[in-house]
Structures are given as structure tokens and as C-alpha cells.
Amino acid sequence: MAFAARKSASASKAAAAKSKSNGPAAFSRDEDLSAYREMLLIRRFEEKAGQMYGMGLIGGFCHLYIGQEAVVVGMQMASKDGDAVITGYRDHGHMLACGMDPKGVMAELTGRRGGLSKGKGGSMHMFSVEKHFYGGHGIVGAQVALGTGLAFAHHYRGNDNVSLTYFGDGAANQGQVYESFNMAELWKLPVVYIIENNRYAMGTAVNRASAQTDFSKRGLSFNIPGEQVDGMDVRAVKAAAERAIAWCRAGKGPYILEMQTYRYRGHSMSDPAKYRSKDEVQKMREEKDPIEQVRRRLTEEWKASEDELKAIDAKVRDIVNESAEFATNDPEPDPSELWTDILR
């Protein structure tokens, strides 16, 4: 594997380690193929979820991850078994990337008994002890303190696992984020804070809500190093993830990665996204799409044949259709489930 230099930020010059995009950190053919497959699964899954929402099969809030796929896929490529993952409500992509069963995720979206939370959590609340996925949280910013607690647990147990704690540009303005930063650095907790800056918090553009829009600097006063990363390029994400995770595993404390990314769809399904122009979205999709970037590399550099890629597309489509079918036909939870799982 040929990666770009694993440049570690120096702790004394905290947050000075800003290496925009870090140039192309080359992927092997297999890595490109695997990133393609993973990102495509998320994209197709989310498109299907959007469609099923439109059909009335999914209710409530449903926040799609379309456009941001490279972030979680790149991060997962650099993580290892036992690393904890936690995020907010825009969580379907994270669960798929953690290897959670697409059928179980989709059936949770439709509120059926085969859903990962037996239909009691919905789109925003799924968990997996086995895959170390800790949700799925609906209170903006809450996952930051919780994720810091997961890192605390790794530290307490003395293992070398890390906590990958994802949150949005909007969440980054919550007070508990800075309470967490402070304790994480104070106690040298192994947590990578991944700020998914998709430029909007609902209808509020970053510059309308944030005095400091360079989120990699948000840890500056705590001496937490940070980087801005091209979150549309899965290779840049993986390279940055490797640096951040190595830093944490070495016992040096937390690390901030600002992932510059973009969501193509509205905030949730009922958001017509009037606060940005169609051209802005179109330009992103045409010039920066994370999946197209990999696809292009696969055909141009790796000479992957149309048939080879079509086979992947078909496989992904089958998985998604199967999960949609399951989520449509699986029965609703038994009424007795109303009263279970309140206490142990």
C-alpha cells in the first residue's frame, strides 16, 4: 500500500498541522474497488430509502447521507476491529460502513420487527454491540460527549482502540463539544473528532452560524491538533484518518478532522433546500462526486472493464432491493414489544 507521508502534527504546535488534501494518496486497485463498492452501497441504499419514504413506507425524520459517502468509508478503511463509532441522526451510511446488516437497517427505517432496534428506534436510533456502533443520536451534539466517554472506556481498559466520533458543522457550535474537547485533551483520550462540514445545518450556511469557519482550529485553545480534509476524496480521507488514528493509538490524545463535504439532498426528506442554488448542488455533483472520482480512476487508471463495474453495481443493487423487500414485508413489532426493553 502506498500512502502519502504519515505526517503527524506536533502537539506543541497544536492545530498547526493543516494539510489541505495532502495531495493524492494513491490507492491500490483493490482499495479503489472496495471504496467504490462501499460508497455505492450507501448511495443506492439512501436513494432507495428516499424512494420508500416517498411511498409512505418510512415515516418521521429521514436524513440521507448522499454526497458524504467518502467520509465514513475512508475513515473505516483506516480503523480496526474494536474501534468505537458514534454519530448523530444522519447515520445510515455509518451503519452500513460498520458492516451492519442492510436488511436490519432498512427494516428499522420502516419500523418493522426485523429492524436493528426491533422497530423501536427508527432512522435516528440504531446500535450494534457487535460492530461497536453506539448510535444513532437525535440531540445535536450529544454524541460528542458520549463518544468521548467511549474513548474514556478504551483508555480505562488500557486497550489501543479509538473512538471515532462524528458530528456536523452545526453540532460543532454546541457547548458540550468544548467541554468534551477539554476533558479529552486533559486526560489524553483516544478520540478522533470527525466534523462533517457539509456547509449547512438545516437551512443555515456555515458562515451564518460560525464565527470560526475553519473547524480544524476548533481545538486550538485545548492544544488539539486538527486538519482540513477534502472529504469528497476517499483517498485523502483515509490518509488523514491514518494520521489521526495513529496519533490517538499512540496515547497522544484527541485529534480533529474537519471533513469538507456536501450533502446533495435536503436536510431531511421534507426539506426543499431553498437556501442554496441548484447550480451549487449541480456543480458539486459534477466536479466533486466521491463515487464518480473512484469510478473514473477504476476505468482510466486501473482499466476496469464496464462488465467488472456493472457486476459490482448489480451486486449492490441486489443487496439494496433485498433489504427493501424485507423491510416492506416484515411485520410490524408485536404489540407486546411496547413494554419491553425499558429496564434490564
Binding site: A145, L146, G149, A153, G175, Q176, M183
Partner: peptide, 14 residues
């Protein structure tokens, strides 16, 4: 707010 959340996170992991 912060240390209650850290405590809960630690408890979620056992």
C-alpha cells in the same frame, strides 16, 4: 453536561 455525557458513553460500553 460534558462529564455526564462522558459517563454515559463509558457506561454504554459496559
Amino acid at each position: 453536561h460534558g462529564f455526564a455525557g462522558i459517563g454515559v458513553g463509558a457506561a454504554l460500553s459496559g
